[in-house]
């Protein structure tokens, strides 16, 4: 546990040691704002809610999250620090969770900094803040899911660009698998059970359920399970490297 916190803190120091983290946050907030207000027609829609804002989250995460996660393990392998880390008396799971939690905390911070949008909508109208709160929670867990995927894939390579591209592709699959377009394609021939399985793996399906304002435990459990699974694979991938 102590070691996990040490790893987590070291990772966070790494984020803020360069201007990159600040640039990232600014870009993230800018995109969030731009999509919500211009693309999402926030004003014209005339509804006092943030559904247009949250609706863009999966799509923005698709690119922003792999940009965070790509360096998690690829960088360690490139610079050789992985040899240092893996020969310290740290259990493998502490390293994996520590790094993941650092990245998740960073994402959480970026997400938190979108609060002016929430202030705006409260200033303009009278939104259901319960729904907004639930959506924030859902968005945070969804970000965790993307991060776990990205972390695992970053362990596969020493090249951050490859890690990024791989993560975007896999995250994309986990996003679109719930879209009607994809499901229609399957439902024409596949058995119903397969279609519902595919849909149930979609981040969209679970996130939209939360966005409706009810935090169903099952949706949170979905993300937690998914995160645990990907992090387990992440640890296995790292352990496998010892074979040389």
């Amino acid at each position: 546990m102590k070691q996990m916190i040490a790893v987590l803190r070291r990772e966070l120091v790494g984020y803020f040691a360069t201007p990159l983290a600040y640039v990232f946050i600014v870009l993230f907030l800018f995109s969030m704002g731009a999509f919500t207000f211009y693309v999402g027609n926030f004003y014209e829609a005339g509804n006092a809610d943030l559904s247009s804002f949250f609706g863009f989250h999966p799509w923005l995460y698709l690119f922003f999250i792999p940009a965070i996660s790509m360096r998690l393990w690829a960088e360690e392998q490139k610079s050789g620090t992985i040899e240092l880390l893996m020969t310290l008396p740290i259990p493998l799971w502490s390293m994996v969770t520590g790094k993941f939690l650092a990245a998740w905390a960073f994402t959480g911070l970026a997400l938190f900094l979108t609060f002016p949008i929430w202030l705006t909508v409260n200033y303009l109208g009278d939104p259901d803040n319960g729904v907004i709160f639930a959506s924030y929670i859902g968005s945070f867990f969804m970000a965790g899911g993307y991060l776990a995927i990205g972390s695992c894939l970053s362990a596969l390579t020493r090249n951050q660009v490859i890690a990024f591209v791989l993560s975007v592709v896999i995250c994309f699959l986990f996003t679109v698998s719930g879209l009607p377009l994809v499901l229609d394609f399957f439902s024409s021939w596949a058995p119903k059970i397969l279609v519902t399985t595919i849909a149930s793996f979609s981040f969209m399906t679970h996130f939209e359920a939360i966005m409706d304002g009810v935090i169903d435990l099952r949706d949170i459990v979905f993300f937690i399970t998914l995160i645990s699974l990907w992090l387990t694979v992440n640890a296995i991938v790292l352990d496998q490297k010892k074979a040389g």
Binding site: R9, G14, G80, L88
Partner: peptide
């Protein structure tokens, strides 16, 4: 690993940290 001190080939270290921060990290982990 607790009983070993190891200097890997090429002396890798976290470049974004200062030696002070880096050694503190090692001490915490230990």
């Amino acid at each position: 690993r607790e009983n070993i001190g190891y200097l890997p080939e090429g002396a890798p270290a976290y470049g974004d940290m200062t030696p002070g921060q880096f050694l503190r990290f090692i001490a915490q982990v230990r």
